[in-house]
Structure formats: structure tokens, C-alpha cells
Amino acid sequence: MQFSVLVDIRLRDGISDPAGATIERALPVLGYEGIGGVTVGKTIRFTIEAADVGAAREAAAELTESFLTNPVIEDAELTVEALVAEASPEPGT
């Protein structure tokens, strides 16, 4: 089965985020008030072939930890979904 994976990568708390700080600083100048906590991260999307959603998530998590992020400075959140909405029922349930 094919699954789509979205990796939402954020800088960890305390890690310098000059892009986020610059955007936040510009907002009042542009007339936007009351907005704070701006952070800039990155998203990576890909598809993965796996037996089920658990296996897809596990493989994506391993890839994320070993290559897509540097755990010293980044955190990531994964969203894994079956690529075809009407996927066949999970075997063994």
C-alpha cells in the first residue's frame, strides 16, 4: 500500500530562528497586531510503500530521525495517511 507522509520540521525551543524573528518584527510595521510566537520551519512530503499505516509510520520516523532532521536542533511531527481514500480493509482485523 502507498501512504503519503508529511514531515513538519520545527526548530527546537531555544534554537535561533532568525527568519521567524524577522517576520514577527515586521508584522506591527505592516499593521498586524497581536501576533506572536512566529516560527519558520520546513515541511517535507513523500510517499512510501508499506504493509500498513503502522509500518509506514515506523519507516518514516526512522528516516526522519536519521536523515531528514538533526535531533540536536530540530523536532518533527509526522502525518501519515493512506494514499487512496477507499483503501482495502486492514488484514487480520
Partner: peptide, 10 residues
């Protein structure tokens, strides 16, 4: 060990 993050300041 460690990592290099973006400079303090912009």
C-alpha cells in the same frame, strides 16, 4: 558532537 545553528542576530 553538537550542531551549528543560525547565528544569533540575523
Amino acid at each position: 558532537p553538537g550542531a551549528l545553528q543560525k547565528n544569533r542576530g540575523l
